[in-house]
């Protein structure tokens, strides 16, 4: 059905982003295809290697999911700060990702957790990794005729931790900036892996590169933390708008980065992944 309508059909999941867009006449499409009741695309399951998330799982369900809270705390953090509880009751994790809005909170989390996206159409199935999935503002790697049918996240090892923080002006607003962090501890107090991605900080979710050179063999000393925060804020590309100046938003990124790393670090040390 999705294939037969091609560009003339748009997939409707929870509708919490799409319906406001249609109402405001910013977007129009001849046909909507409601996939909301495909039961096989809901819920979170885990095995030793991977955590599988059904794209139609609502944000509220993600927020209270035991596997998410225990193994993917950054995803739990993000799910509890998206819009408001009523919208989270209807909005889906797959919709949040496929919408491709750089202000949506889940993409940054997917980035740091190294998610893979299963895209299917009649007679074809492929995997899009997180590096390639987010193309540009409101553009993802989902091609005509395809549906996102699964999100697969590597099950994080022991001594790893993640966190997501965002700053918003009023409850329910899109963020000034958001920061997702994932880290793994190496020998002693050193950090062997660090991934950071930013929300509301550019045309799409912004991955912070160049971190390995900073953390390599180091503990998270104040000096190293300072360099990481500086790196994150230099990668962010915010614009001046009514919510604040670009300079202010870059400072917000820097501050959130430091705070999110501390939370992720605590979680890594506490055995909570």
């Amino acid at each position: 059905m999705v294939s037969s309508y091609g560009e003339g059909g748009k997939i409707l999941a929870g509708g919490q982003s799409l319906i406001p867009l249609l109402k405001s006449r910013l977007f129009a499409v001849p046909h909507l295809i409601d996939i909301g009741r495909i039961e096989g695309m809901r819920g979170v399951t885990e095995d030793k290697k991977e955590i599988h998330i059904g794209p139609l799982t609502t944000i509220s369900e993600i927020e209270s999911d035991k596997v998410v809270r225990e193994h993917l705390p950054a995803l739990g953090d993000a799910s509890s700060v998206i819009a408001d509880p009523l919208i989270r009751n209807a909005g889906t994790v797959g919709g949040n990702v496929c919408h491709g809005d750089p202000s949506n909170d889940i993409p940054a989390v997917m980035h740091v957790l190294g998610a893979n996206f299963v895209l299917e159409k009649t007679g074809d199935r492929r995997i899009s990794d997180v590096e390639n999935f987010f193309v540009d503002t409101l553009q993802t790697d989902v091609r005509s005729g395809e549906i996102l049918t699964g999100i697969v996240i590597p099950n994080p090892p022991e001594r790893s931790g993640s966190a997501y923080l965002k700053a918003e002006k009023r409850a329910g607003d899109f963020s000034l900036a958001g920061v997702a962090v994932y880290l793994e501890l190496g020998k002693g107090e050193t950090v062997s892996k660090l991934k950071i991605a930013l929300t509301s900080s550019g045309p799409k979710v912004m991955a912070v590169d160049g971190l390995y050179a900073i953390i390599h063999g180091n503990t998270l000393s104040p000096d190293v933390m300072g360099r990481i925060c500086k790196r994150a804020s230099s990668v962010s590309r915010p614009v001046d708008d009514v919510h604040g100046t670009a300079e202010y938003k870059r400072n917000v990124v820097s501050m959130l980065t430091g705070d999110a790393i501390k939370i992720a670090l605590d979680r890594a040390k506490g055995g909570r992944r």
Binding site: L12, K23, A83, L86, N89
Partner: peptide, 26 residues
């Protein structure tokens, strides 16, 4: 009518949602 105010809140299958941001067919 823009999913902000919640005046249209109803319960659908046990969960509170904004009925201005849901098609009736859903």
């Amino acid at each position: 009518e823009t999913s902000n105010c919640g005046a249209c809140t109803v319960i659908v299958d046990g969960r509170a949602v904004k009925s201005c941001t849901m098609f009736a067919v859903q």
